[in-house]
Amino acid sequence: MSYSDLDEILEGCRRSNRSSQYQLFSRFYNYAMSVAYRYVSNTEAAEEVTNDAFFKVFTKIHLFEPRDEGGFRAWLRRIVINTAIDRLRSSINAPATQEWRADMDSPMESGIVEQLTEEQIFSLLDQLSPAYRAVFNLFVVDGFSHEEIADTLGISIGTSKSNLARARSRLKTLLADELDLSYNV
């Protein structure tokens, strides 16, 4: 489907045409679910986040200025992330207490985790606390800066860095356990 097709679908969505909305939903359902699943790590919760996000998309579609499909993807991604963060906000803010120190980051040997499957990766992510998982996703996967993370989550920049370092450390430990390797963190 070309961008002109997407543009027509978006135009139909602006007119609240249910068929256009269905096409847009069908086209980006997996994408939105993938983003939501990274934050909530629960299929049922991810479905609710996705539905909430699409509801916002369809009711705020007039705010989106058409550029290209990548632009819409980014817009949808941001909406899904914000919706997931709103859902997790209470649990995200709770454990964020320790400020970041430079020695928290530690090097990692490359090439030891290539053999992990996608399911194993998600199971590792599931074992992070919501606060660590959110910061890790925002920084590593979604490319947010610490300033943006702090603004989005309502925490300090130092806490964002601390949570990221701890998330990395925790993931490395989990990876070592998963791969059964002696691993110096």
Binding site: R38, M108, G111, V141
Partner: peptide, 20 residues
């Protein structure tokens, strides 16, 4: 560290099929 982040970015940023 970049390898570590890049690994997770590549694995997690993909689009997966979901049912329902």
């Amino acid at each position: 560290m970049k390898d570590f982040d890049q690994f997770f970015r590549d694995r997690l940023d993909g689009e997966r099929p979901f049912s329902r």
